[in-house]
Design a protein around this nucleic acid. Structure first.
Lengths: 185, 185
DNA sequence: TCCGATGTGTTGGATATCCAACATTTCAGC
DNA sequence: GCTGAAATGTTGGATATCCAACACATCGGA
């Protein structure tokens, strides 16, 4: 299994940094958060920050990914089918995530957030497709996963834009027949 | 000034250990808390624990002292007189501290707790007496501080024992004339 | 324009922490 | 009693973190 076991100091320090960053994010805008702020809050040296992250954007990226994964892992898609229930669950997880972000202040980084969401969705979709269609070539499954991730993300954008307050569940259900059966002809 | 500046890793690790211990104390009895429990929660190695503390009793001691000092430091007795107001404030700080402990589970360690409270009270009393009576010899001030600390602690025990729910303020005020003016003859 | 102040990154040597292994103690269960 | 499992302490070598110093970029005010 090639289990590599990362040093616990690394796990602890990353957690301290990420927690501090998430905590600060609820108090200041991202652009006003300095690396010194983070390291002071985390009680670690500034040099240590650079041992773990390229720069503050790298941290933003990894912290958001982490938070999103927490949102998603609660649902454990590992062994579930790509069916209506799963799609609804994924969609609400995304809308929840974005709602939680809107209270913090990450304005101006929508593109970063979008990429992170799509990346994680793509991984999840690909795993599911691989399990459900072992006979297909990886190429096609990969591309399908990509398109599904873009599609679902786009749907979440559309849901936010729509002023009528329909629930995420209802909203996405309208599209599910097309996802499952294709557009036909 | 001989400022020695302790390594921030030491401060951070001690804080992690103490916080974990205090957290665990609210979930288990002290006798059921193992050092592995603490180090796991704190995300530090067991060997590191022994770098900072002799054993778990040493930790108990220092953690309780820390908590008590937080209770007391809010009042900053550094520059205040040893008058009625200060005495009432000290007394309520002690009763508050003991009440907070009774929710956690430190039964069987009353003597440790008592010693910690008396030690800290003695330091505070001595500093005040030294400032108010610079002409007196240290010997007498020290002993007075000792007796005051035992006395105030004893009063807090008596307050807890008394079933009639009189407030700490009222309770201690009854003794203040004797403290301030002596027993006379 | 220039300047001081503040933030970003980087580096080499010092040190706190980790790990694995070990001996010892405690204690529940047979 | 005995025995295995779990907890307590201890150690020497490996590694993550700290520190002080440095160069560079940014920026608001004289």
């Amino acid at each position: 299994m090639t289990e590599a076991k990362t040093d616990p100091r690394i796990l602890r320090t990353r957690k301290l940094i990420m927690d501090s960053f998430i905590d600060l994010s609820s108090k200041k805008e991202f652009k006003d958060i300095t690396i010194k702020d983070i390291t002071t809050e985390a009680m670690i040296n500034r040099a240590t920050f650079y041992y773990h992250f390229m720069d503050i954007y790298d941290l933003l990226d990894k912290a958001l990914t982490e938070v999103l994964l927490v949102n998603l892992n609660g649902k454990e898609y590992e062994n579930s089918e790509l069916n209506e229930k799963t799609l609804v669950s994924l969609f609400t997880a995304i809308t929840d995530f974005q709602t939680s972000l809107s209270t913090r202040c990450h304005r101006g980084y929508e593109d970063t957030i979008a990429r992170i969401i799509r990346d994680q969705l793509e991984v999840i979709f690909f795993r599911m497709l691989e399990r459900q269609h072992p006979e297909e070539v990886e190429e096609g499954l990969k591309l399908s996963a990509t398109m599904l991730s873009w599609g679902l993300y786009g749907a979440s954008m559309e849901w936010r834009r729509s002023s009528d307050s329909v629930s995420p569940e209802e909203f996405i259900r309208a599209a599910i027949p097309f996802i499952q059966n294709g557009i036909g002809n």
